[in-house]
Nucleic acid binder design. Structure first.
Lengths: 212, 212, 212, 212
DNA sequence: TATGAATGAGTATTCATTCAT
DNA sequence: GATGAATGAATACTCATTCAT
């Protein structure tokens, strides 16, 4: 079986797998590579995990938890004004950007490798997307309730749209060699789009398909 | 390289691979599965493609071309007003949504499986991201030049932000069982965010970190 | 079936196979390589030969015939003196050496590749060895009968020993980059060994195990 | 490289490969055949050898070492007279004959199969030929120096000629069903040729091409 | 007669997993 | 607990051979 108590060693295996999976890709990584990274026998991995897929699942879960920790760090209902919400979005953006910049492997794992392992892991990624969308929706819903966001906002859909912007930033970090300089530009662009719009003041952009 | 010319057979192999890769995942798919889908001998696949990875590369390229065809269908410089640009974004959104809704496999391939095959294919995906960002940037640059978009817009970054929203919609389609009903909500949410903002009129959202 | 009349094309296929088999080795050579050398379709080869092994068999037979033509060029019973036999050995040595030097592929085929194809071809090689031994034995027997070779000569065994020397020369040609300069040294060494012995005159070399 | 140390298992794999390669031929032998001969899993072979070719190379090297052990067992410089050298040649002949008679596979491997595997193995065979020629040359050189062999002997070439005779005997053993009865005839024929010559006493065999 | 597209038998090789030590 | 030797399922790929054109 794969139940063992030493949590430190279990964590170190996940650390190694996180790094090696990101470096070589899940498929190209052998359990021996992970064990080799730690200098332990590869049989040992099987004392902590059922199988290779189980390692990947744990790596993914831990990665998603670290992302969730940032997303859920703020209190959605505490915000009382548009300015407060704007500041909140900036803070979350900062923290996410720093998270992905500090661990380049993170993005490779959640945006590329681990979603391709099997249906179950893809499902977990989707579920995480849903959860993150729920959180964003809570912020928006709070804003609508407090009156500083538009009353006719499609909260659920807009939450996903907003998350799309934010996670595109995270993906960008993963793709870019030296992502730090881009951080402030990125956050500023997201926040400006959300709160200032792209339109020049005085322009009218309603098309015939727009909301009535 | 492809050793043989018959483009019909080659296309049918790519069709089958597109479908089977999306259904089972690249790693879990054997060349025999692809050939079996067509009722041809698996050796035949090797008359048209060097190896399995080569099939995946061709599937990815074709998928990206189909997306690019939608993205590049509009003329960025033709737009003369905010209303025209808004209509353009709506049209592109429609077409992309329909593309991904009509072929559920497409999203699975470009958002999950084929980016995990190897470094080269991941690189091609990144390059496509860049290309798409260039296109969006051209729209924005045109708007700034014509004066209907904000003069201080960070065009390159905003282009990526906008693409993030749009492709999150495509990813959403891929995840959702019956995506059609969501189409108009999605497009409306994106367009509203870009052109109307989320703020209630009269609210002021400038934080201390915001621009100017 | 594999019976076709055009003997010229059949020969050209054998020429190509002779050359390609020697260059790449039998196992590493594909029928397509042989056909490609001639610029003909590889299906065509099967109109002249049953299969790949059949090509190898024909190549081997032709090679052995060319060797046999040299070996059998002289008349064993015509020799009347030791000097005549010595001259005969020199002539055969010259011709064999030239044969293998003119066609480096020949040695590779008969000494290496084609004997490893299967049991049947190895058997044909052995049979050729036997035939060649018969020829050499005929010379020796003639010499014993005519009285210029030792009466107690073990003709059959000595014939093989002599052939061993001669074919080692041929193998040497195959191994050496520029074999021509060695030709005369080689022939002189063989002839000297056979007719002059290696012993210094006056030395006695009979051991206790030697013939009584 | 060999990944594992257990020399016993490694040797047993070489033993099995030696036998199966000789029985079926290298090309027709699968790694599964070798493993099956030992009753081990075929994956196990890959713990001791990189690949099939690597097994063949090790089999060849070991075979050549066994032959070399016989060739190098005598001390070339110890011989002081023609009779001693003659005895030496007889001993080496005996040992080689016994070696090849005791292991019929040996000859098939070194004379047929393993030289056809690829260029590298053929090269190793050639190198072994050279080494063996060096040894024989050392004997001859010693004899010339000590004055019991002809002063005008072409030592290097004659060494190859002598080896040709000797290895033809070994090849003969490999081809013959019951080789033992031939052993003494063979050795006697070689030794007689070298030390007594084939000419009837009193005959003169100098041709016009012979040494002056 | 010549061709080469199609075929699929055959095999080397990898690596997740087990389990005796 | 830890190890790594042993295992064999799984599969990409080759190429001799066939046969419709």
């Amino acid at each position: 079986m794969a139940r063992t108590a030493d949590p430190h060693r279990r964590q170190s295996i996940l650390d190694a797998a996180h790094s090696v999976f990101a470096r070589k890709g899940y498929a190209a990584t052998g359990i021996a590579d992970v064990a080799g990274e730690l200098g332990i026998g590869h049989g040992t991995v099987y004392r902590y995990f059922q199988n290779k897929r189980d390692v990947a699942a744990a790596v993914l879960d831990r990665a998603l938890e670290r992302i969730a920790a940032v997303v859920t760090a703020e209190d959605a209902t505490a915000t009382r004004s548009l300015a407060e919400y704007r500041a909140q979005v900036e803070r979350i953006g900062h923290r996410l950007y720093e998270l992905f910049a500090a661990d380049r492997a993170l993005g490779r794992l959640v945006f590329h490798d681990l979603g391709a392992v099997d249906d179950d892991l893809r499902e977990r990624l989707h579920a995480a997307h849903e959860t993150f969308a729920e959180y964003t929706a809570a912020y928006l819903r709070n804003g609508v309730a407090k009156g500083f966001l538009r009353a006719d906002l499609d909260v659920d859909t807009t939450a996903r749209v907003v998350n799309g912007m934010i996670f595109e930033g995270a993906a960008q970090v993963t793709r870019t060699d030296d992502p730090r300089p881009l951080r402030d530009r990125w956050i500023r662009a997201v926040v400006a789009l959300m709160f200032d719009g792209i339109a020049q003041h005085g322009e009218l952009g309603r098309s015939e398909h727009g909301p009535g």
